[in-house]
Nucleic acid binder design. Structure first.
Length: 297
DNA sequence: ACCCAGGGTCGTC
DNA sequence: GACGACCCTGGG
């Protein structure tokens, strides 16, 4: 599935323009539940922070524009972050052949790409996601970043902050972390940060592990259960075989594929059998479809 | 005003 | 395995 996508690139005025890129739609990418630091502007563009940078991404007449990015940043950061070396047309082609449900989901979220996000940030973000709502999750992550991250700069009329380092967050008190609106998860966050800072949990080595070992290691962290671990695998470790089963995926799977009441683990196993190496991509298309359409509510 | 659910996990039984 | 609790907040 690895293949440089065909597109025309233009660099001008601290701006990158990608022409002829079909499998890229900002709304699909940023609303499919994989990230929490991108916000939609009134004109439909998205502003977000990633890898110590703040940029605005928009699409018009088939051309995607990344503002506040030069050629160097594009090559060193955004090419990888937006997973531009993966051919999503091929992935979608295979998935669409599965059945009519996946065909509809892929057609609906045709511009989805799975971002390559920073492992530690994803880990903390999805600990916060447990029994929480997406707007609240975004708020909490924004609070933590403003309080404990570093100022990146002013853009779009506001200040932007990077996601905090583990050592900095580990040094904060549970109460202070809680006051960032993280609720009962504050103690998990603090403990997770301590584990990362002390290398009791060695993220560098987890990156090198196979899927089973990496997942097992993540599950040692308080606040990380099966679902959160799978999200970290998919979004923070680029393991496309992971299939996180959350409330939305459960609903859409029950609607299309399995009997009601099946355990989350069995739903995950079913999906892996059915979608195999593309399970993670299938999860994203199904999640986006289910949530936008309100399936099963 | 009250109730409920939200990208689940944990502790207990 | 099955249940209930859990910070907090927006929406019914």
């Amino acid at each position: 599935m690895k293949e440089i996508v065909k597109m025309k690139l233009e660099f001008e005025n601290n701006k990158v323009i990608m022409r002829g890129i079909e499998d890229f739609d900002p709304k699909h990418i940023f609303d499919c539940g994989q990230c929490f630091r991108w916000n939609e502007n009134e004109d439909g563009s998205f502003t977000g922070v990633a890898r110590e940078r703040v940029v605005r991404v928009s699409k018009k007449d088939g051309a995607v524009t990344i503002e506040n990015a030069d050629e160097k940043d594009f090559n060193e950061i955004w090419m990888d972050y937006f997973d531009l070396k993966t051919d999503y047309s091929k992935i979608k082609e295979v998935l669409e052949e599965q059945d009519v449900y996946l065909k509809n989901s892929v057609e609906f979220g045709y511009g989805i790409r799975i971002l390559k996000q920073e492992l530690f940030e994803i880990m903390i973000s999805f600990i916060i996601s447990a029994n929480n709502r997406i707007p609240m999750i975004k708020k909490a992550i924004g609070n933590l970043s403003k309080e404990y991250g570093e100022k990146i700069g002013d853009f779009d009329g506001m200040e932007h902050y990077s996601f905090p380092k583990a050592e900095v967050l580990a040094a904060a008190s549970e109460e202070d972390i809680k006051s960032c609106k993280t609720g009962f998860r504050a103690k998990y966050i603090k403990r997770a940060c301590e584990m990362v800072a002390s290398k009791e949990l060695d993220l560098e080595s987890i990156i090198e592990m196979n899927d089973d070992d990496a997942r097992k290691e993540l599950l040692k962290v308080p606040g990380i259960g099966p679902k959160v671990a799978d999200c970290i695998m998919l979004f923070g470790l680029s393991r496309p075989r992971s299939f996180p089963v959350d409330v939305w995926v459960k609903r859409v799977m029950e609607e299309f594929y399995v009997e009601e009441g099946m355990s989350l683990k069995k739903i995950g196993d079913y999906a892996f059998d059915k979608f195999g190496d593309l399970a993670g991509y299938a999860q994203q298309y199904l999640f986006y479809y289910a949530r936008e359409k309100g399936i099963g509510k």
